[in-house]
Simulated assay, not measured.
Amino acid sequence: MSTDTETSRESEPTSPKRATGSPGERLDGRIGIGTAVLAVVSVQLVAFAVAFAVGYPGAYAGFAVVSAGAIAAWRNRGAFGILSAALGTVLLVALGLPLLMLVARQRLGMVVEMAADPAVQQALYLSVYAPLLAALASVALGVPLALVLARGFPGQELVESLVDLPLVVPHSVAGLAILFGFGKGGAFGGVQFTIPVIDFTFKFTVLQTMLGMVLAMTFVSAPFAVNSAREAFESVPTRVEWAARTLGANRWETFKRVTGPLAWRGVLTGGVLAWARAVSEFGAVAIVAYSVEFFYLPEGESLSAQHAPVFIYNTYLSAGLEESGAVATLLLALSAVIFLLVRTAAYDDGGWP
């Protein structure tokens, strides 16, 4: 009898489970978070396009704030969550609306014309190449320092203050510091060596040289690489490192097999931030290396060009807002694509590279 009852119960169709959570969370579960984010971004872009088309782009700011609060309410975040979303969106609008306006007010023909200009191409190339060298220098020299800072030592506060000092130094002062420190009469102003076999002579010169540009960019961007790497190393559990040491690994093996794999995303993020900061540098570069000679790979020869922010400023003074805005849009698009690609790679689910 009991067997028949159990059999009949097993044969009975199970009732569907009642959905739990807010409507927004249930919707995310059905369509996926990525699709939901894409839908929200698409709606925001359409709203901005409509507001811009009717001549009231400022109305989009109100729409963005209200829609953020509505999404928080839909996801059942409560009054505090709604207020946080609304206030946070005010800052996002302040950051994003000028960039949207910059892109929206450009004339496509002018952007295409400036993109085909060899001088613009050379400036954009230099503005990726030189910051890349500065970011590599910041990471190569900053990671060992970050590891030491993460472990701690007496007087660490003084070193951390020195690392962070470029963040508060005015850009023009940074450029002057580079000239006083490494220019004529500076610490390495008279350094020169020659390799007779290949007829190569190197002279340490920073004024109007690629070396000076990279030094200026490294000066302002190194804090981002050091601080990001330090935070990544500090997040690595000490017990895991000690476990590796007790199993016979030396310090280098522990870093290679334990610390590095657990902290590499933070190190890469620091390098990306350092690159982005170097791309945006104007004041120090304008003082130290207004125009530099470098090897331009597409043409296979050395030529002289300006860092894109300096080039954009000169274009604004000589040609006006329209042409400088077109070049600025090209630089913004190029930087955004590279930044997003590297950030996506950094936060992929892949392991230690």
Rank of each mutant, 00 (worst) to 15 (best):
T201P: 15
G109M: 00
S291H: 01
F255G: 10
V240T: 12
T20E: 12
S22N: 11
G58F: 12
G78H: 10
P309V: 15
W275K: 00
A174W: 06
V267L: 03
V66Q: 02
A244I: 01
E293V: 12
L133C: 05
E281V: 07
A276V: 10
D117I: 02
P23N: 15
G270I: 06
R26V: 11
V220T: 13
V214Y: 08
H171E: 01
D28F: 12
R265K: 05
Y290F: 06
A140S: 09
V163H: 06
L97C: 10
Q192H: 08
A72Q: 03
A72H: 00
I82R: 04
A119D: 02
L147M: 04
F188Y: 11
V279S: 07
R9D: 01
A276C: 04
R245W: 01
T246Q: 07
G55T: 15
V50Q: 05
Q106V: 14
G271I: 14
W264P: 13
G266C: 01
L332E: 02
L317N: 05
V128W: 13
R30Q: 14
V37M: 11
R107C: 10
N227S: 03
V120T: 01
R245P: 02
L87G: 04
G69L: 10
A187C: 05
P118I: 08
F294Y: 06
S161E: 03
T5G: 03
Y296T: 14
R26A: 13
A61V: 14
A326Y: 05
F153Q: 01
E299D: 05
A61L: 15
I312H: 03
A216F: 06
V169P: 13
A64C: 04
G181L: 12
L132E: 13
D28C: 10
P166D: 01
V90A: 11
F224R: 00
G185Q: 10
V112Y: 08
F255E: 07
L268W: 12
R230N: 12
R343K: 01
R265W: 04
P223E: 11
R77V: 11
S67A: 08
L262I: 02
L334F: 00
F80Y: 14
S127C: 14
A216P: 09
A232N: 09
F233K: 00
V112T: 04
T205Q: 14
A177Y: 03
T218S: 11
N250L: 09
V226M: 07
S2P: 08
A286P: 15
E160L: 07
F204K: 04
